[in-house]
Each structure stands twice: as C-alpha cells, then as structure tokens.
C-alpha cells in the first residue's frame, strides 16, 4: 500500500533543501493529503456530538408508564383536597413526610368507583379491591444515601412544594417515567436537559441544586450541631 509517508520517505534524497537546510515541499500535494484527515476529524466530531447529545440520552433512559394514570388537577379541587398538596402528601405526627399515599389513603374515598373514568374503575378493581399497593414510580426518589427532611424545608423554610417538584398539581395525567438504566433512578434527578442546564428551580434535583439554594439564602450550609460543613448532614 502506498501512503503519503511512503512517498515522502522515498522523495527525501531528491528533495531540494532551502538555505536553512529544511526540505522544500510542494504545497499542493500537502493540501491534497490533509483534506481527508481534516474531513475524518470533522466527521468524528460530528458523529460524537450526535451520539453524545441525541443518541446517548435515548439509550440511557427507558420509558415507563405509571401503573395508574393519575389526574392531579382533578384532585386539587378544594372540595376534595382542602389542604392542597398536604391533603394527600401530609406530614405524620412525628414530623416525617408520608410521600406518595398508601393505598389505604386512596381507599378512604375510592372504596368504590366514584366517577365515570375507566382508569378509576380499573384502579378500584385492580388495587382497592385486591388490597395490593400501587407500585408508583417516584420521580423525585433520591438514592438511599441521601437524607432529606421535608419538614425542615416546608415548615421551617416555608418553601412551596413546587419549588422543587414543579407545578405538578395542575397536571391532568401522569407523564412518562424515564428510568436511568444504570442507576435505576428517575431522569428528573439529573434533569430533562442532558447537559444539566435548567431554567426553573424544579428542573433538577442534584446536590449542586440543593447547594445553590442553600448558598443563595445562606441557610444551614453545615451541620446543625457543629455549624460546620459536613458530608453527614445530607449523606447519612
């Protein structure tokens, strides 16, 4: 196989030298030989950019649907949920947060089918009647090593639910749950934007996002006990 290098080597004895002793090259063949290299380089960049920005996110996340298509907006009717979010996502007496309601809470109203919705009828049939807990997929679930106290933020910090969770209360159906194939956690933690950019406070739930708010408001950046920064404040 003949290559540019081969030719160059072969030409060495014939190549005239300039006054500094450097070999003189004809610029035309050099441009010819560099063009495919540059092209390959650019193709490499383009392909990897496409993979990194478009293909990779598609491969990384699997799409899952919630077991029951839940309508938040309908449940937020003040007659149903007088206390807003806290009607179902309440604090227990000991201050711990109940999270997603257990079936028993749903069954308080939905012991029998209440409305016209087919989805509700299926929910009552499959879960309420059988007593099987609904295996909800939790968009905001953090790894087990993350300690987060809802009451410290909601009651002490007077924060609104939507600051972190978005305006979920107006949704009329559950959105697709994108599960990270490597970690098993929801895409919501890293954020929809694969680059990690965010427009709203609720777009991401990574450690930096916690820190951003804590720094901005200059609150508890360290341990309550020592008033110094410490991993164990949040990582128990």
């Amino acid at each position: 196989m003949s290559t540019i290098d081969d030719q160059t080597t072969a030409d060495v004895p014939q190549t005239p030298e300039d006054e500094n002793g450097h070999p003189k090259h004809d610029p035309a063949p050099a441009a010819d030989s560099n063009a495919p290299v540059m092209l390959s380089f650019i193709i490499g960049i383009v392909i990897s950019l496409i993979i990194g920005w478009a293909v990779f996110p598609k491969l990384l996340y699997s799409q899952k649907t919630q077991p029951v298509n839940f309508n938040h907006a309908m449940h937020m009717d003040p007659e149903i949920s007088a206390e807003g979010c806290a009607s179902c996502h309440y604090f227990r007496e000991d201050g711990s947060f109940s999270g997603i309601p257990k079936l028993a809470s749903c069954a308080e109203c939905h012991e029998d089918v209440l409305g016209e919705s087919e989805e509700e009828a299926r929910f009552v049939e499959e879960y309420v009647k059988t007593g099987k807990e609904v295996p909800w997929l939790v968009y905001a679930r953090q790894p087990d090593c993350v300690f987060f106290s809802h009451i410290a933020h909601v009651k002490m910090g007077n924060m609104e639910c939507k600051t972190c969770h978005g305006d979920i209360g107006v949704s009329t159906q559950t959105r697709v749950y994108e599960e990270n194939r490597i970690t098993g956690y929801s895409r919501d933690i890293w954020g929809k934007n694969i680059a990690g950019f965010k427009k709203n406070t609720w777009d991401r739930m990574k450690m930096d996002d916690c820190a951003e708010c804590h720094k901005a408001n200059n609150v508890n950046q360290g341990s309550v006990q020592t008033l110094r920064g410490g991993c164990f404040v949040c990582h128990k």
Binding site: V37, M38, S40, F41, I42, I43, G44, I45, V46, I47, S48, L49, I51, G52, W53, F56, I194, A195, G196
Partner: peptide
C-alpha cells in the same frame, strides 16, 4: 486517527 481524535474531542463537548 483523525476520526478517533475528532470523536474524542467531540465527545468531550457532549455531556456523555
């Protein structure tokens, strides 16, 4: 080689 280097450089410009 150029393709690989381009790929590597490009990858570094993605969040991957």
């Amino acid at each position: 080689l150029a393709l690989s280097i381009g790929g590597a450089a490009g990858t570094a410009l993605t969040p991957l």
